[in-house]
């Protein structure tokens, strides 16, 4: 969806619309992969549960798509995978499309009600923007940092002592730098987002991917009806 420049939330102006051609194209591609047998739905639904970790460690899959925050799953659940993985850009449907997507991140808002707004804001800026703060974010949490100047910083990006870098043959930040800010698409996070995400994840994707013959149009119509009830 983001590769085509679409956004099903409709942004802040709304309304949300999940019946997009880009969404249909993605789902029909996934259905055809499942039918041909070269892709599978991860056991128990996604790669962020024990069955998914085991499936990875049992060498049943050669690739899976996941956001950078997945890093800690390697250290926590799959320590034996050190040096086994290669991180790559997301493939695109057509040349020239964006090959990554930003869908928000860990909340970094200072609310009006907070007792010490200045201090909270100062800390948030230090943690999310300063080199020292970003170093902690990457070393401890394994998230991709927002300070893009650090992406190309040799000492930061190529630190072989970093516990997450050790899992990869190449360096994750080299891939991020290669993608570049201009190639990162955007999906808004607005008040209808939880409704869309929840309906798609619990119902639509289960319908379409657990039964590759299920009509994508029907599934998306059901989703749209449920979302329309909330907007």
């Amino acid at each position: 969806m983001a590769e085509y420049g679409d956004d099903w939330t409709g942004g802040f102006e709304g309304p949300a619309n999940v019946q997009l051609d880009s969404v249909k194209e993605m789902l029909s591609m996934q259905q055809s992969w499942l039918k041909s047998g070269f892709a599978e739905v991860s056991p128990d639904g996604h790669v962020d549960l024990e069955a998914g970790f085991q499936n990875i460690m049992d060498r049943n899959i050669v690739s899976f798509p996941k956001a950078m925050w997945y890093m800690s799953r390697f250290t926590n659940y799959m320590p034996d995978e050190k040096g086994n993985w290669y991180i790559a850009k997301c493939p695109v449907f057509k040349e020239g499309q964006k090959c990554s997507v930003g869908v928000g991140g860990t909340g970094t808002v200072v609310t009006q009600q907070s007792a010490n707004k200045e201090l909270a804001a100062e800390f948030t800026c230090w943690a999310k923007m300063s080199e020292a703060g970003e170093q902690h974010i990457w070393d401890t949490l394994g998230f991709d940092v927002c300070n893009t100047a650090l992406w190309g910083d040799e000492a930061f990006a190529h630190d072989d002592n970093n516990q997450y870098n050790q899992f990869f043959i190449n360096y994750p930040y080299d891939v991020l730098s290669d993608i570049g800010m201009d190639n990162i698409g955007k999906i808004s996070v607005v008040s209808i987002s939880p409704t869309i995400n929840e309906y798609l994840c619990t119902t639509t994707l289960n319908e379409v991917l657990e039964d590759p013959d299920y009509s994508i149009d029907d599934a998306l119509q059901e989703a749209q009806d449920a979302i329309d009830m909330e907007q």
């Binding site: 639904g45 939880p194 409704t195 929840e198 994840c201 619990t202 119902t203 289960n206 319908e207 657990e210």
Partner: peptide, 22 residues
């Protein structure tokens, strides 16, 4: 609180979904 096609969703689960999650 989310199960495939809501097969495990209960009344209190839905209450939690609406009240806390949304």
């Amino acid at each position: 609180n989310s199960s495939p096609n809501n097969i495990g969703l209960t009344i209190v689960g839905y209450l939690y979904k609406r009240g806390i999650e949304k």
